[in-house]
């Protein structure tokens, strides 16, 4: 464990908690893409299958349980409890256009052709693009509540911090995983325009407005 990965996990945890609190407190999931949340739940489910098979550490197990529970709780809030506030008309990204290439790529580019490894690879590639429906929805609605933009900033930062973690681990532990690194860079790059808007606008108290 190193400071970059710890900060990354904390940022990830913060993002998930911000989202849960936003929906629970405002009793509304307006502006939130249910499709992205579904993709995140799929990501954690396929990646944390080893939750019960190999124990890494208390921290590792605790975080996996929290991420799984929070992502399913968020889906329940969006599609069940506050279903009436779910903005279906703006959450229209075709996720099949994500699932197909991710599935093909995980079958072609993986470290080992075993079920558990393919599922892990699939989850790594899926996570890289899982935010696209949400970013698409923000661009369609043309704006995002500031709490939603804080959520996106924390979520985008987490994998950016993981990139620093991979640099650290490469030099200090001569460990690297090209699949995770490639997907992590793509995932972080997808947030770039949002990061720019967040830094230049939201931090100055303005609303996040995307050029429609």
């Amino acid at each position: 464990m190193n400071i970059f990965r710890l900060l990354g996990d904390v940022s990830h945890l913060l993002a998930i908690i911000i989202l849960l609190l936003k929906i629970w407190k405002t009793r509304s999931c307006a502006g939130i893409s249910g499709k992205s949340q579904l993709l995140f739940a799929l990501t954690y489910t396929t990646r944390y299958l080893d939750l019960v098979t190999n124990f890494v550490s208390v921290y590792n197990t605790f975080m996996k349980v929290v991420f799984l529970a929070a992502s399913y709780a968020t889906i329940w809030l969006i599609y069940m409890k506050f279903r009436a506030t779910y903005d279906q008309n703006h959450d229209t990204f075709r996720i099949e256009f994500l699932l197909l290439p991710v599935t093909i790529l995980s079958l072609v580019a993986n470290h080992e052709f075993t079920l558990i490894e393919i599922l892990w690879t699939w989850s790594i590639y899926l996570e890289a693009v899982a935010i696209l429906p949400q970013l698409f929805m923000v661009s369609k609605t043309g704006e995002a509540e500031s709490i939603t933009s804080h959520y996106l900033f924390a979520l985008g930062s987490y994998r950016g911090l993981y990139i620093l973690n991979w640099i650290y681990r490469y030099y200090m532990e001569s460990y690297y995983d090209l699949i995770a690194i490639f997907a992590g860079i793509l995932q972080t790059v997808l947030y770039c325009d949002f990061f720019y808007l967040y830094i230049t606008k939201v931090l100055r108290g303005q609303r996040l407005q995307l050029p429609a």
């Binding site: 990965r5 890494v56 892990w120």
Partner: peptide
């Protein structure tokens, strides 16, 4: 690449 046995990253 020396693959970490088991996944220690989240």
């Amino acid at each position: 690449t020396n693959r970490a046995t088991g996944k220690d990253e989240l």
